[in-house]
């Protein structure tokens, strides 16, 4: 950071002003904290509470059942032992698998593609402004709209994508992209990468533009190959920026709902954790069970973020560098 705001102006003025400012700070924060408590903390706690009940359509009918939504061991009359609950639900694990697969693949592609586009935009050429504007368009389009646009382009009979691929002789017959189990995930990935790679490019570009130009100059004079410069100089320098962008995208990907719900409705090959949780909560009226799934998703994300920040030493708030 360039601005020197080490302690604010208060330190020189003595403790009373500091105290006065701290008191004011509390009242300035109070409305925001109350609002966040109301819309985030409270509903989250209620969701966790519901996950310990067997509530159904009428949410207040549920009894407290401890962890039975998560793990339930039943012994049938025949003597057979059955394991039930979210942790033993193959549908849930299928959703976890779908979500993780989607997130990892999409984020890898988006990061690589984003970096490539960012490197292009970092070069100086005529029409750079136009390109930068053009790549903002996918980001500006609402997800539902892009899902519908691509659903039309991916349509089996009248879709333009099949037409292009047929003309290029890349496929021999029309593919029902969103309906087939083996291509549904590819369809979701295509749309998500299209929509988010430009966003990644902008984040990477912001990182690239902070690399001092004279570093490249020095490398050029020393005769270092551009590819070596990229891996030895550029990449290490923009690593913090990319690391932050990747975690933001990863969290976004892990909670994906709208694109999957609209592009490939009811496909088991793409159903993600968010989709299956909502399905149980709303469509199947299994309020307690759906809450248990939502809570598990929340726990998975929390563990993932903590690990990432801890292992990667990522500084998200920018507090320590000040």
């Amino acid at each position: 950071m360039t601005t020197a705001s080490t302690s604010g102006p208060a330190r020189a003025m003595g403790p009373s002003l500091q105290q006065q400012r701290a008191r004011a700070a509390f009242w300035f924060l109070a409305p925001m904290l109350f609002a966040l408590f109301l819309v985030a903390a409270w509903p989250l706690m209620r969701t966790i509470w519901f996950s310990f009940t067997d509530a159904t359509g009428n949410i207040y009918d549920g009894k407290f059942v401890w962890f039975q939504n998560y793990v339930r061991v039943q012994t049938l009359d025949s003597g057979k032992t059955m394991y039930r609950g979210v942790f033993f639900d193959p549908k849930w694990w299928n959703a976890v698998y779908n979500t993780v697969r989607f997130s990892v693949v999409s984020v890898i592609f988006e990061t690589v593609l984003g970096l490539v586009i960012a490197l292009v935009l970092n070069a100086e050429f005529k029409g750079r402004g136009i390109v930068r504007a053009a790549i903002l368009i996918p980001w500006a389009i609402p997800t539902i709209v892009s899902a519908k646009m691509w659903a039309w382009m991916l349509n089996d009979q009248y879709g333009i994508l099949n037409d292009i691929l047929l003309n290029l002789h890349l496929i021999s017959e029309k593919i029902a992209w969103t309906a087939r189990d083996d291509t549904a995930m590819i369809a979701v990935l295509i749309v998500d990468i299209w929509k988010t790679a430009p966003f990644m490019a902008l984040l990477c570009l912001a990182g690239l533009q902070m690399v001092p130009r004279d570093i490249y100059e020095a490398a050029r004079i020393d005769g270092v190959h551009p590819i070596k410069v990229f891996f030895k100089v550029t990449l290490p320098l923009i690593r913090p920026a990319v690391a932050v962008a990747v975690i933001f995208r990863m969290l976004d990907a892990l909670r994906i709902f709208d694109l999957v719900y609209v592009l490939t409705p009811n496909s088991t090959a793409t159903k993600t954790m968010s989709v299956i949780s909502r399905e149980n909560l709303i469509d199947f009226s299994k309020f307690g069970y759906g809450s248990a799934e939502s809570t598990t998703l929340f726990a998975i994300l929390a563990i993932f973020v903590s690990l990432y920040i801890w292992l990667g030493r990522v500084d998200l708030t920018g507090e320590t560098s000040r």
């Binding site: 819309v39 509903p43 989250l44 706690m45 969701t47 996950s51 909670r255 949780s277 939502s294 998703l297």
Partner: peptide, 17 residues
């Protein structure tokens, strides 16, 4: 952390509210 929240995690509590 709240801005990165999976919205589905507050959905049940929000429906109740």
């Amino acid at each position: 952390a709240v801005s990165m929240f999976p919205q589905i995690a507050v959905l049940a509590g929000m429906i109740e509210m």
